[in-house]
Design a protein around this nucleic acid. Structure first.
Length: 559
RNA sequence: UGGCCGGUAGUUCAACUGGUAGAACGUCGGACUUUGGCUCCGGAUGUUGCAGGUUCGAGUCCUGCCCGGCCAGCCA
């Protein structure tokens, strides 16, 4: 079943049918190199690259480096890396808005010559104050009617560095009473005596976003310029500039779509910076962050992110996606690809009293690596008389619907035998410290010859062969589905329990061979990513669907 | 306060552009199962923001209202 086309693809198709750009489709992904990409950007990356690819077109990576403050090459590199990790290859080398600074400047002189732009001496406050507001028109600048010659010479002086920061700006001459505030003589150039990470000190005037973006699109031959909804009002300006310039080719068009929002997290650059600088998270690649680097460290497969983006589609409605939907794509992908292993996070000792320790101190059991992928084969797991099992898999006094181990109960050990709990050893506080059990030697194939059934299969690790590891468990970064809803500070709903470290997890020996960055499934627990820097540190990517947890949750909430 | 853009199951999107509303995730129930996973089957949830109007017929067109988002940076 194919999804119907979204409004952007519909438009592209219509343009192709009408021969608008002679069948050519070109897009671009235009980040500013002043921060890291997050999953919201991934949506735009997927859209731009996929729309181009679907139509045999090209998509470039273009850095929107029009404001030297805060921008630098390290961010640009990180962004390029993240795009590559996501699985996209930009057309050609990355380009930059700064590549067009000279071209832009010539065009600015052209507009000045046409009487469509002027140099304004007013300072920022004055310009702001005279812009008017939603109900009152702005006041025209006293500089608005300067002659072309004077404007040209002033603009050249601006470029030559004869003025201080903020002393003059170049403005488009449009309409100070326009209902769209962006059309009230918008600023095109501002003076900033700051070195730029690519052009050095070649320039001291820098183009604004509005003056650079559409023109860059036109220079590159972009046909469909896709951006987020908040640029909707800018489209009018985008078109105005392009209409008044001698373009080298077809005129690009801007289309806006809703950016991606996810529950229980924040996406705005400012809020993410706060989290990092306030030490609420551990750097830009903290696995709880929605940054691509964070998700990567957490073990999210790029394919899952792409599938998620394809699934949510593109529309003009601003909404919030449930993080659970993203997680379901992660699970679906990892279920097919991740190898299964056994790990015990909260160990409880099991002693098997009838194990033939003298004949067989250790038996190597064969375990399936991935039932969803038979070619992944099998591995051997040591089994001994002393095992670790999960504390949660045993209850002294089991409630209804608890199928796991309890006094007198029998369960199956995964890839092992049936195990019966005969006796429980507790310490002086009543805490269970050891289970005395027996195994059934006739159940080595997982079945009982007499046909008796068990309700549960639990995982285990041989105590004397266990490998120690540190396991980090993660929960939602924010407790509120929409942090900062109704105007409150998002940080108020920061979840202090979003992170838990288990220092003494017990892992099956095979896990010592896990490659850096590899994601495996700890059976019955979830998917875990081996840290790429710290050996034997595992991050929980996402848990498995857990019906027992659901039953407990329902019990807590309801009746 | 003016302009623009939106409003369809809990959530995100559909509905061939006027013919009595569907999918995915979630949820509930069942089957299967050496992961309470996976897979499969089935159920529930909507006065399509509200009120009028046009029409044989409106989620689709018109009018008014309500609600949400964006816009008054020399940020992008």
């Amino acid at each position: 079943m194919h999804r119907p086309l979204d409004f952007i693809r519909e438009r592209v198709q219509a343009d192709n049918a009408a021969g608008t750009y002679a069948g050519r489709v070109q897009t671009r992904f235009p980040p500013e190199p002043n921060g890291f990409l997050h999953i919201g950007h991934a949506k735009a990356v997927c859209l731009n690259f996929e729309v181009a690819a679907e139509n045999g077109g090209a998509c470039r990576l273009r850095f929107d480096d029009t404001n030297p403050e805060g921008e630098d090459a390290a961010y640009a590199q990180a962004i390029a890396d993240d795009i590559a990790w996501l699985g996209f290859e930009p057309d050609g080398r990355a380009v930059h808005a700064s590549d067009y600074f000279e071209h832009l400047y010539q065009w600015a002189e052209h507009l000045v010559s046409e009487g469509l732009a002027y140099v304004d001496d007013q300072d920022a406050e004055t310009i702001s104050a005279t812009r008017g507001d939603f109900s009152t028109p702005g006041v025209e600048s006293p500089c608005r009617d300067r002659s072309v010659e004077e404007n040209l010479s002033l603009l050249r002086d601006m470029r030559a560095g004869r003025y201080d920061n903020g002393e003059k700006v170049l403005r488009a001459k449009i309409d100070m009473a326009h209902p769209n505030m962006l059309m009230r003589d918008p600023v095109m150039y501002r003076i900033r005596h700051i070195p730029h990470f690519r052009t050095g000190d070649a320039w001291c005037i820098y183009p604004t976003y509005d003056w650079a973006h559409g023109q860059s699109d036109a220079i590159e031959g972009v046909t469909h310029s896709l951006c987020s909804l908040e640029f909707d009002a800018h489209r009018q300006l985008y078109d105005w500039f392009l209409e008044h310039l001698p373009l080298p080719g077809d005129r690009p068009r801007q289309y806006e779509f809703a950016r991606l929002n996810l529950t229980h997290t924040v996406m705005s650059k400012r809020k993410l910076i706060t989290l990092v600088t306030d030490g609420l998270v551990d750097g830009w690649d903290d696995p709880r962050l929605p940054t691509l680097r964070g998700l990567r460290r957490r073990g999210y497969p790029p394919e899952a992110i792409r599938e998620f983006c394809a699934h949510i589609g593109v529309a003009r409605v601003n909404g919030v996606h449930e993080i659970e939907l993203l997680e379901s794509f992660v699970r679906t992908h990892l279920n097919r690809t991740a190898q299964r292993r056994m790990a015990v996070l909260r160990p409880l000792e099991v002693f098997i009293t009838n194990w033939p320790r003298w004949d067989r101190p250790v038996e190597h059991r064969s375990a399936v690596n991935n039932p969803e992928d038979p070619p992944a084969g099998n591995r051997l797991v040591p089994f001994t008389e002393r095992l670790w099992i999960e504390r949660d898999d045993f209850m002294l006094d089991p409630p209804r619907k608890f199928y796991r181990l309890a006094p007198g109960r029998e369960v199956r050990l995964r890839a092992g035998y049936f195990l019966r709990c005969n006796d429980v050893e507790t310490d002086s506080d009543g805490k269970v410290v050891r289970l005395w059990c027996t195994y059934d030697p006739d159940t080595g194939d997982g079945q009982a010859p007499d046909g008796r059934k068990v309700r549960a299969t639990i995982h285990w690790v041989a105590a004397d062969h266990a490998v120690d590891a540190t396991v980090a468990l993660y929960d939602r970064l924010f407790t509120d589905p929409v942090p900062g809803a109704d105007g409150r500070d998002p940080l108020e709903s920061y979840n202090p329990d979003s992170w838990e470290l288990i220092a003494d997890a017990k892992l099956e020996p095979e896990l010592a061979k896990t490659a850096p960055g590899e994601v495996v499934q700890f059976e019955r627990l979830g998917y875990f990513a081996h840290d790429s820097g710290t050996p034997m540190l595992f991050h929980r990517t996402v848990g498995l669907r857990d019906e027992w947890a659901n039953i407990q949750k329902r019990r807590q909430q309801g009746s």
